[in-house]
């Protein structure tokens, strides 16, 4: 199978205007992924599915990822004059990154027996009801999994035939897999609390005492 860079180059050639980039994975698994812009996601995905060299005819998994607003720190070597001598000093450079949500697709080819190619779509922000493009028209197996991502992360899929909650009930307002999800306070009975649960149980106790 060709490398992800080759796939990217061919997809860019096939879909004019598509902005693709390779997201590196530095862990030993080295599963690098292809980030595609929301506008051209459908065309790029169609290319990946129909291209005779790739033929990624099976979408095995769709999932969401939540990235909070974060401050990234990077070590940069800077030349500085210290005590009259020029030296190389390490400085920590801090940059702020706005949070975003991602929908991640794992694509395999059943006919050519290769994969996975990992495709990501990124939303511009974390505000409610942020849109990406649904790939359900290309792979039927995305239907329920995109509903699940919608249910738990609040990502809207444009072009999905039946976008409803799937695990939680209709009328539920929260998105429980988001990192800033606040769960209902039902820590009234914790016989053996520890760590996070201990803190929550203590907070619950304090709130009860204020009420009383």
């Amino acid at each position: 199978m060709e490398t992800l860079e080759q796939t990217k180059a061919r997809a860019e050639a096939a879909v004019p205007g598509a902005q693709l980039s390779v997201v590196k994975n530095d862990s030993p698994s080295a599963q690098h992924s292809l980030l595609v812009d929301v506008e051209h996601a459908y065309a790029v995905a169609k290319f990946l599915r129909d291209d005779p060299q790739l033929r990624l005819d099976y979408c095995s998994n769709v999932t969401g990822v939540d990235f909070l607003d974060a401050e990234l720190s990077e070590k940069v070597k800077v030349k500085k004059v210290v005590d009259g001598v020029e030296k190389e000093v390490e400085e920590v450079k801090k940059t702020k990154r706005a949070g975003y949500l991602e929908a991640v697709y794992h694509l395999y080819s059943m006919s050519l027996k290769h994969g996975p190619v990992i495709l990501r779509q990124r939303t511009p922000g974390r505000a409610d009801l942020v849109k990406v493009t649904s790939l359900t028209p290309l792979w039927r197996s995305c239907e329920f999994q995109e509903r699940e991502v919608f249910d738990l992360y609040g990502v809207l899929f444009d072009g999905h035939p039946d976008l409803r909650r799937i695990l939680m009930w209709d009328g539920f307002k929260d998105y429980p897999m988001r990192k800033d999800y606040v769960e209902p306070d039902d820590y009234e009975y914790e016989p053996t609390p520890h760590d996070e649960v201990l803190e929550k149980a203590k907070a619950h106790q304090a709130a009860q005492e204020v009420k009383a």
């Binding site: 009328g171 539920f172 929260d174 209902p184 009975y189 914790e190």
Partner: peptide, 21 residues
């Protein structure tokens, strides 16, 4: 009933009270 954030009510106090630890 299904509420916006949790079941309503979250427990039936006539049936269950948290044990005092």
């Amino acid at each position: 009933l299904f509420g916006e954030h949790d079941l309503v009510p979250p427990k039936n106090p006539n049936v269950w009270e948290p044990a005092v630890v």
